[in-house]
Every structure is written in C-alpha cells, then in structure tokens.
C-alpha cells in the first residue's frame, strides 16, 4: 500500500495543478475549432509546419551525434571536471535562447568568428537558411540528449561491460553491442525530448536564422508573427505545438529519469 499524503499537501497539489493547467485550458478555450482545417491548410501554416518537421528532425539527429559522445565521456568522469563539462554541455538548457542565438551569430554569423571563414572558404552562409535553423535547434536540444543518456549510462551495472571485455570484446564492440542496446530507453527518451525541444525552439532561431517564410519561419516563429496578424491562425498552430509536446511527454512517461 502507498503511504498517504498529508491532506494539506494534496490540497496544495490540486491548486498547483489548476494554476499550471489554467493557461493551457485558456488557450484551448480560444481555439476556433470549426475553422481549424482551413487555418492549418493556408500556405504560411503549411510551409511552417513542413519546415518545422524537417528542421526539428534534423536537429534531433545532430543533437544525438553531438550529445552521445559527450554523455559517454561524462559518465566516466567525476568531481569538478565532470561538473564543469556537464555545465558547459547543458548550459543551453538554462541559458535564455536569445543569448544562445546571439552566441551562434557571433560564431557562425556572416561576421562571426567561424562564419566569415566558412563564407570565404566554401561560400557557406548559415543565417537565413534552413541549415541555420537546424543549428539553432540542435544547440538548445543537445543538453536533453546529454542528460538522459548520461543518467542511463550511470545507472548501468559496469559488470556487463567488464564481462564483455573479459570475453575478449574490444571497447568499441562492447559499446556498440552491449552498452547501447542496454540504454535503449534513454536513447529513445533523449531523442524524443531533443526533438520536442527543437520543435518548440523560438529565441535562438529568430536571433540566428531570422524569419524568412518557407526557409526559416518555423511554427513558433509563425505563431509569433500571426499573433499580430491573424490571431486564429496563431491559435491553430499553437494547438499543433501543444498537441505534439503533450504526446511526446505522455508517451515518454518516466523514461526521462531512468526507472528505479
């Protein structure tokens, strides 16, 4: 039997849930339900939807490619070096996204530290392109991969790896054939959280990649613009974002933090 919570705490929880749910409820309240099909099929919305899908998926992939090695490295470190590396790797999670976008601009912008070189050497300009959106999204999404996978790795019993090594498997083979399959649920959780975060990205994207319809105007940016131009369209797009985010979170259940 689960021990009972104090009545005061249960009451507080009830009030807290109401407070958290109120804005969401108010948003749903305003949605012009009968107009939804028309609103979601306008060109601006369809473009933003497609672009968002494409860039967020690409960003989740990039986040996995960057996040997995960092998570593995972190899982074998301890003390101050680990805390420092973890802080650097997960900073974008707590940093205001607009600061992240500005940082990206100073790095990869046309006048940026690396951006100018990229432009001169390869004619590669990232701002105002879908690739720029992917970079901005991946920047904010990577910490979710790092944290979920590191905690998955730390929860892993080291004896499996030791056994594999004792049986003659190389570190690479052990990692690929033993460790990765065992942390599969962390990988899935990290990927989905990164994708959901990328899909909702706003500040870094608009700062770094600008707001070009069809090229860099993702759903959140289109919502921002439509809030002043076409409120019903903004609400329809908000609904899509709320729905996707809820589906991701509900389907992940307790995978974010590894089950006890």
């Amino acid at each position: 039997m689960t021990p009972q919570l104090p009545r005061l705490l249960r009451l507080a929880a009830f009030v807290a849930v109401a407070v958290v749910a109120a804005p969401l409820f108010s948003l749903l309240w305003r949605i012009p339900w009968s107009e939804l099909p028309r609103l979601l099929s306008t060109e601006v919305v369809a473009d933003a939807l497609f672009l968002s899908l494409l860039t967020s998926l690409a960003a989740a992939l990039v986040a996995l490619l960057i996040g997995i090695p960092i998570a593995f490295q972190l899982s074998r470190m301890s003390g101050l070096p680990a805390s420092t590396l973890r802080a650097v790797a997960t900073l974008p999670m707590v940093l205001p996204p607009v600061v992240g976008g500005a940082a990206l601009l100073f790095a990869f912008g046309r006048k940026g530290l690396l951006g100018e070189t990229l432009d001169n050497a390869a004619g590669l300009v990232l701002p105002y392109t879908p690739a720029g959106v992917v970079i901005a999204n991946a920047f904010v999404a990577t910490p979710f991969v790092v944290l979920t996978i590191e905690s998955g790795l730390r929860a892993l019993d080291p004896r499996y790896e030791l056994a594999a090594a004792a049986l003659g498997a190389s570190p690479l083979r052990t990692t690929l054939r033993v460790v990765l399959p065992m942390i599969r649920s962390s990988l899935v959780a990290g990927a989905f959280l990164a994708w959901a975060r990328a899909l909702g990205e706003f500040g870094a994207t608009i700062t770094f990649a600008g707001n070009v319809p069809g090229r860099t105007q993702t759903l959140p940016l289109a919502v921002f613009v439509a809030m002043e131009a076409d409120r019903d369209a903004a609400l329809a797009m908000s609904l899509v974002l709320v729905f996707v985010s809820l589906v991701v979170l509900v389907s992940l259940r307790d995978k974010w933090w590894p089950a006890r």
């Binding site: 105002y128 600008g210 707001n211 070009v212 319809p213 069809g214 860099t216 105007q217 921002f224």
Partner: peptide, 8 residues
C-alpha cells in the same frame, strides 16, 4: 521580398 527576413 520572398527571401527577406521579416523582423518584428
């Protein structure tokens, strides 16, 4: 202006 960035 199709590829222009639209600022707030």
């Amino acid at each position: 202006l199709a590829s222009a960035t639209r600022e707030s």
